[in-house]
Measured scan of single mutants.
Amino acid sequence: HNLTITQGKLFFHYNPKLCLSEIHKMEEVSGTKGRQERNDIALKTNGDQASCENELLKFSYIRTSFDKILLRWEPYWPPDFRDLLGFMLFYKEAPYQNVTEFDGQDACGSNSWTVVDIDPPLRSNDPKSQNHPGWLMRGLKPWTQYAIFVKTLVTFSDERRTYGAKSDIIYVQTDATNPSVPLDPISVSNSSSQIILKWKPPSDPNGNITHYLVFWERQAEDSELFELDYCLKGLKLPSRTWSPPFESEDSQKHNQSEYEDSAGECCSCPKTDSQILKELEESSFRKTFEDYLHNVVFVPRKTSSGTGAEDPRPSRKRRSLGDVGNVTVAVPTVAAFPNTSSTSVPTSPEEHRPFEKVVNKESLVISGLRHFTGYRIELQACNQDTPEERCSVAAYVSARTMPEAKADDIVGPVTHEIFENNVVHLMWQEPKEPNGLIVLYEVSYRRYGDEELHLCVSRKHFALERGCRLRGLSPGNYSVRIRATSLAGNGSWTEPTYFYVTDYLDVPSNIA
């Protein structure tokens, strides 16, 4: 807008934040220059609390790290170098490059900038070799853009010569660093050979998330399962459950009422301010606690030095998902009996873990797994792929695949051998790939016309006998059925096997 004052003059007093240069501009645009008398524009009460600059400061050096910015700028000295009290560095987070010096300023003089007072450097006698002032900004957020400017702080001049310097606002972004852990990993099994893994992005990506790394490792069953005799009275049979499938998407929606109208769909109840505040506090606490764990609990591995020492970490090797089922080394339970199943799973520490690289999504279907087997899954978020990966501390989750139908069934015939004193040795093959492992066998036998009897055969007993022995049988026709019990439950009964026990007292003698 054009402003013209045809008559009258300007009068400025007691404006401590208004620089004289701005008042002189007002004289020019209003056409009143030359009308004012000496005392109409006070030299001592206008701009006496402001830094009124008329020179431009330029930054000469900028260096960044993930949490620091090192700045240096060209030296500046007023005509009387004693008038320079120091520099004021202003900075704040700036997602967009549209910041002005006066953003967030209120009537009390406060604003949204963080201000650092910096002492002037030592003055050199040689004007050509003056030290460049600077400042190291610490405690910054990774991968965050900051708006920065600097200006001088000078003393009051009796001659009211307006001098000083100020830089333009520059924008500097800190470097990326390792992201925080992925949030809320959930693993479920939808079949006997697959596990579905879902997660949420890290709360602090500290860069642009480029991919996720998912490692999985087959877990050995508890050692007590191999040692305890679950045929003993009072000892509860062990059981394991597989990871249940995901709930429906509708039930997972946030901010939804727990109660549904019987007449149909209901609208979600909005969260109160107290609920939102509580969630923010919980989120802040979780982030602080995660940072504490990362800094205190997890110790970084030592990389190899120039002395030739090897990095103890196993090298990563990509495998196809079809090879995942046989990740671990199978060892027989008892070496003397080769027909026992290889369900003991000690994992070799030198073995390469299978892994998958996930790009542009937060889910993965891990296939080719062994049925009813526990897996430990390790999830890392990465925001750099080359020249070397920059990934987060791992988040861990466990899951067990679903049982395989008929995996616990005894394959092959049940054979028998009759000894003296009416002892019958029953023999059968253990299931080759049971659900988890076989903890015991149930032997059901009966003599024709009598009630059915049951015998429990422990895992250890089966390994020693290759089956079991029935003792003290009365003469007669017998039928026997056997079924295995694994961590997933009972298998199917075998087809009945028949044998006849004679009275050993009636056996004919070869003595003449």
Rank of each mutant, 00 (worst) to 15 (best):
E388N: 12
S367V: 09
S257W: 03
F226A: 10
T307E: 15
F337S: 09
S474H: 12
N477A: 09
I482P: 01
E465Q: 11
S363V: 05
V296A: 13
L235I: 11
G234F: 15
E224V: 15
A336L: 12
S320F: 12
E356Q: 05
W216I: 09
D204K: 00
C231V: 02
E227A: 05
K233W: 02
R301H: 04
N295P: 05
T288A: 13
G467F: 06
V297L: 09
E356R: 12
G374R: 02
D506E: 05
S262Q: 03
D291F: 06
K302Y: 09
S320Y: 11
S304V: 13
P475Y: 09
E265Q: 11
I511F: 07
P475M: 10
K432V: 05
C231W: 01
A463M: 10
T373S: 07
S251H: 12
E433L: 05
L237S: 09
V331P: 14
R466M: 09
T210W: 10
G264W: 11
A309I: 09
E265N: 14
P403R: 13
L213R: 15
F372A: 08
P244E: 13
R400D: 04
V423Q: 08
L470Y: 01
E495A: 10
P332W: 15
R319V: 06
Y396C: 07
E227N: 10
D291H: 12
T307D: 15
E433Q: 08
G472F: 11
L464H: 12
A399F: 08
V327I: 06
W216Q: 11
W216E: 03
T210N: 15
P312D: 13
A335Q: 05
S344M: 10
A330R: 15
Y500W: 13
L213M: 15
V329L: 08
S474F: 12
H294Y: 13
S320D: 08
A309F: 04
C456L: 02
Y445R: 02
Y498M: 14
G264F: 02
V359L: 09
F215K: 13
A335E: 12
L237I: 05
E227R: 09
A309Q: 05
E420Y: 15
G412S: 14
V365H: 12
V457K: 09
E362Q: 08
S341R: 08
Y259W: 14
Y441K: 00
P244N: 11
R390C: 10
T241P: 13
L455H: 08
S257D: 12
R240I: 10
S248E: 01
C267Q: 05
H254T: 11
V439C: 13
R376E: 10
T497S: 09
S492F: 03
G234L: 10
E351Y: 13
I209M: 13
N435H: 03
S284V: 07
S268N: 14
Q380S: 10
S203F: 12
P475T: 09
V297H: 05
P300S: 07
V327D: 12
K432W: 04
N477G: 09
I366D: 01
E217V: 09
V329K: 08
S203P: 03
F372W: 10
E281I: 13
V501G: 00
A484I: 02
E310R: 03
C391Y: 15
E281P: 03
S203Y: 14
E281F: 13
E290D: 15
I418V: 10
C269H: 02
A463T: 13
S305W: 06
D385A: 14
P205V: 01
R319W: 14
T307K: 04
R240Q: 08
R301T: 14
P312H: 11
G322P: 09
L369F: 09
A394D: 03
S315L: 11
E378K: 09
E260F: 12
N435P: 01
P332C: 07
K302V: 08
H454G: 02
T340W: 14
V327R: 10
R240P: 10
R316C: 02
F419T: 06
S284M: 07
I377N: 01
V296I: 06
Q384T: 08
F462I: 04
D261K: 06
K357G: 09
V423R: 12
G467K: 06
L437T: 00
F289Y: 05
E351F: 11
R301I: 04
H254W: 09
G322A: 13
G368K: 04
L453R: 02
E430V: 11
E224W: 04
G449N: 11
E430R: 05
L225Q: 12
D222T: 08
L440Y: 12
P205E: 03
F372P: 00
D273I: 12
A407D: 03
P475C: 08
G308E: 06
P300F: 10
I366K: 06
T333N: 11
N421G: 06
A381D: 00
T241K: 09
T343R: 09
R240E: 07
K233L: 08
G368W: 07
M427K: 08
I276D: 03
V359G: 12
G306W: 14
L321V: 11
E227H: 10
S203A: 12
R370A: 13
A381T: 13
Q252N: 02
R483Y: 02
C456F: 02
S257H: 05
R301V: 06
A463D: 13
G325K: 11
E265P: 07
G489I: 09
K278N: 08
L426A: 02
E420G: 07
V214W: 01
E356C: 13
T343Y: 12
Y478Q: 03
G306Y: 13
F462K: 10
S268R: 15
R483W: 01
P332H: 10
F355A: 08
S262E: 01
P434D: 00
S257N: 10
N421H: 08
A394S: 05
W493P: 01
Q256F: 15
R471Y: 15
A263R: 14
E465C: 07
A484T: 12
G264Y: 14
L470P: 00
